[in-house]
Computed example of a mutant assay.
Amino acid sequence: MGETVTGPARKPAPLRVRTPDQAAAVVGRIGAAQVQLSRLKASLDVAVAQANLAYENAAAPLRAAIEADTELLRGYFDANRSTLLSGGKKSVALSTGTIGVKRTTAKVVVADADALLKLLEEDRKLRRFIRTKTEVDRAALLAEPKVAVTIPGVSIDGGDDAFFVKPLMVGTP
């Protein structure tokens, strides 16, 4: 199994911070723990990258074999389609699986969206292909919170002071 990673022995934190020196010590402990966390994360990232590389190396020949065999089957299927798909069938069952055809999902491809939009706007009969979206402008409400809170169903959350600790990151990887 892998190595167990443990941090340096820590003395228990005082129940209350009473002096600036005690506060500085606690911030220092937080910073040291953050450095350890970032090192652990970097180690994890390396392990994940190595696992992904090993997977891709092992998967590449399998993907190539699947692609080659699929093309072999496609050649057989295309050459014998009329006999394989008699009676309006879309697939044929074999002893090891099924081969067949299925209709793919249609999609619209637009080369130049701005030019198309202009064309649709100019032709009254084609305007039905334009979508107009109406939605609440939350940024505008937040910009005027005193007015916004007078509107039924609107409240402003947050905007309070939030405590933070930002240790000096000494010795980061």
Results as ranks from 00 to 15, higher is better:
E3Q: 06
E3R: 08
T4L: 12
V5E: 04
V5I: 12
T6V: 08
T6G: 05
T6A: 07
K11P: 01
R16D: 08
T19E: 07
T19V: 09
P20I: 03
P20G: 02
P20V: 06
Q22H: 03
A24I: 09
A25C: 05
V26L: 13
G28W: 03
I30L: 11
G31K: 01
G31E: 14
A32D: 15
A32N: 13
A33W: 01
Q34C: 09
Q34R: 15
V35P: 00
Q36C: 04
S38R: 15
S38Y: 08
K41L: 04
K41I: 04
D45Y: 02
V46D: 15
A47M: 05
V48S: 06
A49V: 04
A51F: 10
A51Q: 13
A51N: 12
N52L: 09
L53M: 09
A58S: 12
A58K: 11
L62M: 11
R63Y: 08
R63V: 10
A65R: 15
I66G: 09
E67K: 13
E71H: 06
L72N: 14
L73R: 08
G75S: 15
G75H: 13
Y76A: 15
F77L: 12
F77M: 10
D78K: 14
A79Q: 13
N80A: 05
T83G: 07
L84I: 08
S86G: 13
S86D: 09
G87K: 05
G88S: 05
G88K: 02
K89G: 09
V92L: 11
V92P: 00
V92H: 03
L94G: 07
S95V: 13
R103N: 11
T105I: 06
K107G: 10
K107P: 02
V108M: 10
V109T: 15
V109H: 12
V109E: 08
V110T: 04
A113N: 03
A113L: 06
D114A: 14
D114E: 14
D114T: 10
A115G: 02
L116N: 00
L116P: 01
L117M: 09
L119T: 12
L120K: 01
E122W: 05
L126F: 02
R128F: 12
R128S: 13
F129L: 15
I130G: 02
V136N: 07
V136C: 06
D137T: 08
R138M: 14
A140Y: 05
A140F: 04
L141E: 00
L142A: 11
L142R: 02
A143S: 14
A143L: 07
A143N: 14
P145N: 04
P145W: 04
V147H: 11
A148Q: 00
V149C: 00
V149K: 00
T150N: 05
P152W: 00
G153P: 04
V154D: 00
S155G: 04
S155L: 01
I156C: 00
G158H: 06
G159N: 01
D160T: 11
F163C: 01
V165E: 02
K166S: 14
P167L: 08
P167D: 13
G171C: 10
G171E: 06
G171V: 06
T172H: 04
T172Q: 13
P173N: 13
